[in-house]
Each structure stands twice: as structure tokens, then as C-alpha cells.
């Protein structure tokens, strides 16, 4: 464990908490892409299948349980509790355009052709594109509430910090996870446009981020 990975995990946790609390307190999921949240729940489910078979550390196990619980709670709030507030006509990204390539690629490019390893690879590739429906929804509505942009900021920051973690681990322990690194770089690149808007608009105190 190093400071970059810890900061990344904390940033990830903060993002998930920001979204969950926002939906719970505003009793609304307007402007939130339910599809992205379902994809994130799928990412955690397929990545953390080793939760009961491999014990790495108390921290690892606890964080996996927390991430799984909170992502399912978010999906529950969007599609069950506050479903009448769910903005389905703006959440129209065709997720099959993400799932088909990701499934295909995880069968082609993996470390071992075993169910657990293919599902892990699937979760890595899926995480890189899981935010697409949310970013698409923002471009479609042309705006995002500032809380939603803070959620996206910490979510994008988490994988950027993981890149620093991989650089650190490469130089200190010769660790290099090619699939995670390539996918993580792609994932972070998808946030660059948002990061620019976030810094130039939201941090200037705008109530909500209006796209140009």
C-alpha cells in the first residue's frame, strides 16, 4: 500500500458517498444516470468475487464490502425508492455498445483463461467506460448540478491517483499490471474534458455546470 493508492481509494469512497447522500437527502436522482450506477455495481460484483476465497488484508476486505454495499444501495435508490424521479428519457445511452466490446475484449486479452480472471478483466475494462452514460446524459441535458460534478471529480481523481500508484509500484516493487494500467489510463482520459469544465466553471463558484 502506498499513499497514492490510499488517496485513490479514499477519493473513490468519497465519490460514492457524495452521490449516495445527495440522492438520499434530495430524495431525487434527477440528472443521475442509473445506467452508469448499474454498470458500477456490475464492476464491483465481477471484480470482488474473490471476496470470500482470497484474504489480502482487513482493509481490502472491508473496502470491497463497503463499495459493493454502497453501489447496490445507490442502484436501489435510483430504480426502486426514487424511481419516479429517475430521468429515463435523458438516460438513453445504449449500454450494449459498451458491454459487447468489453466482454469480447476480456475473452481476448486476459492473464488467464479462467472464469475468475476473465470476470476480473471484464470488470477492469467495464470500469473504464462505465461513466459514459453519465457523461452522455450531462451533454444531453447540457448541465449538471454542482454536487454531481463533485461526484465526477472524485471519481475521475481516484483512477488518476491509481496511475500514480502504478508508477510508484513499478519503481519500488517492479509491479506492473498491464491490463489495469492501460484501462486506467483510458478511463482517466475520458474525464479530461470534464476536469477542464470542472476547474473552469464549477470551481469558479457557478451553481451548476452549464456545458458550452
Amino acid at each position: 500500500m502506498n499513499v497514492f493508492r490510499l488517496a485513490g481509494d479514499v477519493s473513490h469512497l468519497v465519490a460514492i458517498i457524495i452521490l449516495l447522500v445527495k440522492i438520499w437527502r434530495s430524495k431525487s436522482c434527477a440528472g443521475i444516470s442509473g445506467k452508469s450506477q448499474v454498470l458500477f455495481a456490475l464492476v464491483f460484483t465481477t471484480r470482488y468475487l474473490d471476496l470470500f476465497t482470497v484474504f489480502i488484508s482487513a482493509y481490502n476486505t472491508i473496502m470491497k464490502v463497503v463499495f459493493l454495499a454502497m453501489s447496490y444501495a445507490t442502484v436501489y435508490l435510483i430504480y426502486m425508492r426514487f424511481r419516479n424521479m429517475y430521468d429515463s428519457e435523458n438516460d438513453t445511452f445504449r449500454v450494449e455498445f459498451l458491454l459487447v466490446p468489453v466482454i469480447g475484449l476480456s475473452f481476448l486479452e486476459n492473464y488467464a483463461f479462467t472464469p475468475l480472471e476473465i470476470l476480473w478483466t471484464f470488470s477492469i475494462f467495464l470500469e473504464a467506460v462505465a461513466i459514459m452514460p453519465q457523461l452522455f446524459m450531462i451533454t444531453k441535458t447540457g448541465e449538471a448540478e454542482s454536487i454531481t460534478t463533485h461526484y465526477l471529480f472524485f471519481l475521475g481523481l481516484y483512477r488518476a491517483l491509481y496511475i500514480a500508484n502504478w508508477v510508484w509500484r513499478y519503481h519500488t516493487e517492479e509491479f506492473f499490471d498491464q491490463i489495469a494500467v492501460v484501462s486506467g489510463v483510458v478511463q482517466t482520459i475520458f474525464y479530461c474534458d470534464f476536469f477542464y469544465l470542472y476547474v473552469t466553471r464549477v470551481l469558479r463558484g457557478k451553481a451548476k455546470m452549464i456545458l458550452p
Binding site: 482470497v54 492473464y111 491509481y162 509491479f175 506492473f176 498491464q178 491490463i179 489495469a180
Partner: peptide, 10 residues
């Protein structure tokens, strides 16, 4: 070395 089968990252 490429990632070992044991994935220790979240």
C-alpha cells in the same frame, strides 16, 4: 512482470 493472478488492488 504482468499482474499476477492475485489482484491485491481494489
Amino acid at each position: 512482470a504482468q499482474g499476477e493472478a492475485l489482484h491485491d488492488e481494489l
